[in-house]
Design a protein around this nucleic acid. Sequence first.
DNA 1: CTGTTAGCGCTTTCAC
DNA 2: GTGAAAGCGCTAACAG
Lengths: 329, 329
Amino acid sequence: MADVAQVAGVSAQTVSRVLRDPAGCTPETRERVEAAIRSTRYVQNLAASHLASNRSMTVAAVIPQIAASVFAETLQGLSNVLLQAGYQVIIGHSDYSHEREEDVVRSLLGRRPDAFFLVGTRHTDAVREMLQRAAIPVVETWAWTRKPIDQLVGFSNHEAIAAAVAYVQRRGYARPVFVAAARPGDDRARERLEGYVSGMARHYAGQPARTVVMEDLPYTMGSGRVLLDAARTQFPDSDVLLFSSDLLASGALLACQRQGIAVPRQLAIVGFGDYEVGRELNPGLTTVAVPTVRMGEEAARMLVQRLRGEPVAARRRDLGFELIERGSA
Amino acid sequence: MADVAQVAGVSAQTVSRVLRDPAGCTPETRERVEAAIRSTRYVQNLAASHLASNRSMTVAAVIPQIAASVFAETLQGLSNVLLQAGYQVIIGHSDYSHEREEDVVRSLLGRRPDAFFLVGTRHTDAVREMLQRAAIPVVETWAWTRKPIDQLVGFSNHEAIAAAVAYVQRRGYARPVFVAAARPGDDRARERLEGYVSGMARHYAGQPARTVVMEDLPYTMGSGRVLLDAARTQFPDSDVLLFSSDLLASGALLACQRQGIAVPRQLAIVGFGDYEVGRELNPGLTTVAVPTVRMGEEAARMLVQRLRGEPVAARRRDLGFELIERGSA
DNA sequence: CTGTTAGCGCTTTCAC
DNA sequence: GTGAAAGCGCTAACAG
């Protein structure tokens, strides 16, 4: 910056001013400085800027898995809006483990982000405490709770599955089974299981909850195949399977195709998440759509508002879900 | 850090030492300091550390799109290995545009990453120059070139598609068509197109290259449906379609299913990338597998070696590809 | 093995 | 509108 200042014939302070508040100096000064920046190929050192100004212009985001497409979509929404506002996103992933999340949050806090984005509303006490002490805006997503750490933009996994149960009941299915791959730390999957149980109590009074939940399965279409076989073995008289994810449901539907099981006549299938693959299958996958991208965008907007010191309308925003009826159920 | 030092009864320097080289002090000192860190809930400010040490312990990565699953997988591989070595990844995305890539690289350089990861080998001159001046290890991926900016770990998109052409020729297909969605800045798609053209010259001497390439289509299964229709209209006598991506091929295959086009008897389909969906379809998708995750891991290993000052065996590593024969062709 | 000193490259504050 | 001085929180280099 000193070099640029010398070339432009001004003080370093003026260079800094041109960079952060161009309106604060005369147009000629500004142009001279900008020319000097170009000719010297100067790239501002943001670590020094951060240290001096106490603002890092970054937002930390922790998601369960980078390669999980739904979270990547949320991240894309978050990142798009945040970049507009001049913020960079730094990403960590927890591998669906609360302990790893704690480590990741601690490590990301070392970079002094100006705000924090989390997937889920269940965290260790240490995480809640660290974030509270950091005294920065925090937004939780992909779930619902009465008491967020700070802000919340999401939907109720519980209600979403309950709505699916209501739907299959309305369509006359007799024995719905809930089928899931659910890592121990995957609270969303857990909440969906609970939603199924309470949906059964509400809409299939007297019937037992029937579930096939495996903890050690990856979230892939191949696991859907495995779960289909398990469900058929365990509940051979079931007429509809509610999956915790479209990925699993799609794998199961394609496996049915191979095994000559007619969907939905012999066995109906409901997914969760409205992944693209479900739209293209034959028959199309009946599913519950959730606002994947919008959660990221809205979370970003809420954070930016807070960072600008603007008042925020509501600390919690329920973006809801939508049951999408296609051929599979 | 001064607070921690006071609580532990040592100097700030000793706290710093415990954090970066625990072996460099007596176990008792170390334990006193660690206890003080816990009791004060100290989180080291990495921006200050970066400024003082001139090492940010970050690696910048630019990918075309965060929500594109193949790049997310590469990123996961990169991130896993780098985290082990103590490096954080900061991510930017170019939206398949060279101009945006330039902006993103400039902005990421402001954070003074210790190394740089890029997808692709074609970049603007400004990008090459900025990275050269930064004088940090750079690794390019997902393609092949004789003259990388610095290091390269990838495969030849050109050869990969040529191999697919050779395969369909061997299997007796008469009129292969190359079908792609290819954004203007998507060099990988472009290289695949070139690979098809030269594969045709080699294996179908005398035949014209037949291509259906759309520039304004998203990389989704839905686009595969659109492209299938276009290809059937433009080349009704074609007996095999080579797609630039499994996503497109899968969409097309499912559309064939709906339209009653028998695959592969009436029309064969070859994909690219070995996405999971292709493995589950009926028939399974014949495709070219590329080392998605391994490229990230190997790139990370090469960078870490360089950052540690260790000698690197080779500046370029060709991870190759593999033709996977399934039912669709 | 531990402490002291001097800065890293910026921004804030306050003069002018 | 612009410049000078001080300092952000840490680490390198050196001394002891």
